[in-house]
Design a protein around this nucleic acid. Sequence first.
DNA 1: GAGTGGTCTAGACCACTTC
DNA 2: AAGTGGTCTAGACCACTCC
Lengths: 253, 253
Amino acid sequence: MTLPESAEPEAAVAPGPAFSPLYQQIKALLVRSLQAGEWKPGEAIPSEMELAARFKVSQGTVRKAIDEMATENLLVRRQGKGTFVATHAEDHIQYRFLRLMPDDGSPSGMARQFLDCKRMRAPAEVARALGLKSGESVVWVRRTLSRNGAPVVLDDIWLPAAPFKGLTAERLSQYAGPMYGLFETEFGVRMIRAEEKIRAVAADATSATLLAVSSGAPLLSVERLSFTYGDRPVELRRGLYTTASHYYRNELS
Amino acid sequence: MTLPESAEPEAAVAPGPAFSPLYQQIKALLVRSLQAGEWKPGEAIPSEMELAARFKVSQGTVRKAIDEMATENLLVRRQGKGTFVATHAEDHIQYRFLRLMPDDGSPSGMARQFLDCKRMRAPAEVARALGLKSGESVVWVRRTLSRNGAPVVLDDIWLPAAPFKGLTAERLSQYAGPMYGLFETEFGVRMIRAEEKIRAVAADATSATLLAVSSGAPLLSVERLSFTYGDRPVELRRGLYTTASHYYRNELS
DNA sequence: GAGTGGTCTAGACCACTTC
DNA sequence: AAGTGGTCTAGACCACTCC
């Protein structure tokens, strides 16, 4: 069965009938609604019964679509209350993407300090990663995160200038909360997932100064490419982490 | 509803009725069967219909239990064939837990070389991590992984001596395949999940020699604690990775 | 064709939240 | 009490694999 709404363009060359279950089609429609901003981050989406009626399928089918979106962290279910659009802007979800933990328990808050924020032409490497044409404008941000007064993270961040028009150091400093929260509420750009490439590098002169370590000290280099809906890359971030009293935590399964 | 078989010991102090859905109880029973070795890694478990009959529940309930175990990588579903116990010993699943990727595409095979394998008393730190009594025996293994003749990984591995009785350098060298495959087939110990703590460190003299880098060169330190069924830790591994031509890949969501 | 997992439905009831 | 998500059932049919 195929929903009437879904065009389902059949590739002329790739022959496979590419059977797509109903719930996958529902899921695609829901993602499009999220992308279009029909429901904003933090808001509730319609109930399963309503969606089932809208799409003319059973509740179970809607359920399976939502289930997958919940495990992908696009939606959050709350029993008795409803299903909500995931967000980076909630107090208890701070730093959803930051895996750096202090050696001594508490993953408490970190102090943000913005060092620079400039509009510039995208370096070739950045343009490639973000899928921009060579020479297009990007916004470059440099900032540090400190714990107990000591700098721990030095981030260089590149964002395509177009969707982030109006991003200034001032604006960044005023916003209390994670950057991804600001991106959501001020620019309507939601980070869905990210890929990281991690290396050990030696601190160069400027990094060493900014992180208060000696030149040549080993640092964790974390290169992160973040994606919005539709797997469009919208942020390249290169973090340098000091790992003397912190570690990057990962779970394998 | 509660399955008659499940004892469900009620904590005297913690009062909550702790409602447990049927499918969770089924899941717990299936995990116990895996733990007991009723079905070995790579083998098929009974069909959903058979299990439904055995547990006197509907197929859908068994399905949901299996679904969760599949997303936890305990089981693998193959449409038309059956549901199989996950394993580290399959050719195409090589290095399930190794996230190190070469800069130039192909994650091809690596050459293993075992440098040492000794029985010793557990250092305090190791004992603590593995939940052993101070002074209990462990097996210590040191090995390297090389790509294209160049060493890339130096691993120090500590295993509780009891379950790994008879593990020798000889035995390790002869086995073609990942260590976790050998652990499964030879010692019946299956690694289910792992936690890693990642840091950047400077190479000390011996590491530098073994990895053919200069002393003080930055290396990625990956401390991995691996768990079997029931969240029992059974391996502590400290890897040093050279990241000049490789990177540690991670996905965030 | 028989057996397996995968999808979809319709309906009942449960647990949680809010009013 | 009403509305939400969460569980469970029973049955039909589909897609894939193997014989």
